[in-house]
Simulated assay, not measured.
Amino acid sequence: MNESIQQSFTDIYDKLIGWLTSFINSLPNLLVAVIVMVIAYYSARIVNKWTARLASKRIDQDSISKLIGRVSAVIVVSLGLVLALGALDLSKTLNTLLAGAGISGLVIGLALQGTLSNLLSGIILSFRKKIEIGHWIETNGYSGEVVDISLNSLILKEFDNNLVIIPNKLIIENPLKNYSITEKMRIAVDCGVGYESDLDEVTKLVKEAISGVYEQHDNTEIEVYFKEFGDSSINFVTRFWVDATAAKNKLEAKSIGIMAIKKKFKANNINIPFPIRSLEFNSNLNLKNINADKRLLQN
């Protein structure tokens, strides 16, 4: 019994000594692997920075330059990992990992379907020239300036300076309005005039008011269309073109147009009616009955 216990302790001791010897023998390789990974990490950061900078000189779109830099950094880190595993003599382990990557990739792909969809959408967005950093867009119920296009999301800065993070998948799948693609925008202003107004004169005054603040170019003209007989006014819409690349420019132009029309109408005595309610009382009231009711209330 004692001999068996003693033999067990001896085996354990020999095993520990063997492990320690193996660890000491592999220390140089482990040190080399650590150095390789550290070098790969810092090299990836440098490569990311310089690759993105070189790409930006040839490519105007910043999102594509950033994507190229990130991909270059991932390649450098992957090469460092392969070299580190080779230094540790784990090439067989690496082959086993690569052999199982097919099945693992299928499982991971199913589990991360939404993430991978955003990733692919981010790559597509990065190469789209119709949406770039600095553009003012409207999508998914949000409107703002594009400040970043990453591999998984797009960041908008709204007019109130709040940031909105939208998954790239939603940007690809939903309609998008880009105000920055074109340099001109058509503005529509609705208004109404009284029934007594001369509509030919109204048309002339509206065109004079708008042309005084926004001169039309390239064969464009100010349009005035009467739409309907309203409850208290004849309603019309005027349309004109302005130089605009953001939703803010649209609001400014509409505001300036409304003020110009209001000022012009006031100077020419054109009425802009507003809904009113008239109360009509019957003048044939029986005053005797009213006085009798008052006496009853006093008693």
Score class of each variant (00 low, 15 high):
Ser63Gln: 06
Gly257Trp: 00
Pro167Arg: 01
Val213Thr: 06
Thr220Ile: 05
Val237Gly: 09
Leu79Met: 13
Ala52Met: 10
Asp148Phe: 10
Ala52Ile: 04
Ser197Ala: 13
Ile155Glu: 12
Arg70Lys: 06
Ala244Met: 05
Ala247Thr: 01
Asn29Glu: 03
Leu120Pro: 00
Ile68Glu: 05
Arg186Thr: 05
Ile171Asp: 12
Lys248Gln: 01
Leu20Lys: 14
Gly144Ala: 09
Asp160Val: 02
Pro28Ala: 04
Leu156Glu: 11
Phe23Cys: 01
Val147Ala: 05
Lys264Gln: 15
Ser153Leu: 09
Arg45Pro: 06
Phe236Leu: 15
Val107Asn: 05
Ala99Arg: 09
Val242Ile: 10
Gly109Ile: 08
Ile137Asp: 06
Asn140Ile: 03
Glu173Phe: 04
Ile172Gly: 03
Leu83Asp: 09
Gly257Thr: 00
Arg295Ala: 08
Tyr195Ile: 10
Glu138Tyr: 01
Leu88Asn: 07
Gly257His: 00
Phe23Ser: 10
Lys254Trp: 00
Val202Cys: 07
Glu201Arg: 15
Lys248Pro: 00
Phe229Ser: 15
Ser117Tyr: 04
Leu125Met: 06
Ser143Gln: 03
Lys207Asn: 11
Asn168Thr: 09
Ile39Ser: 08
Gly192Lys: 11
Ile155Leu: 13
Lys15Trp: 12
Asn25Cys: 00
Leu170Arg: 14
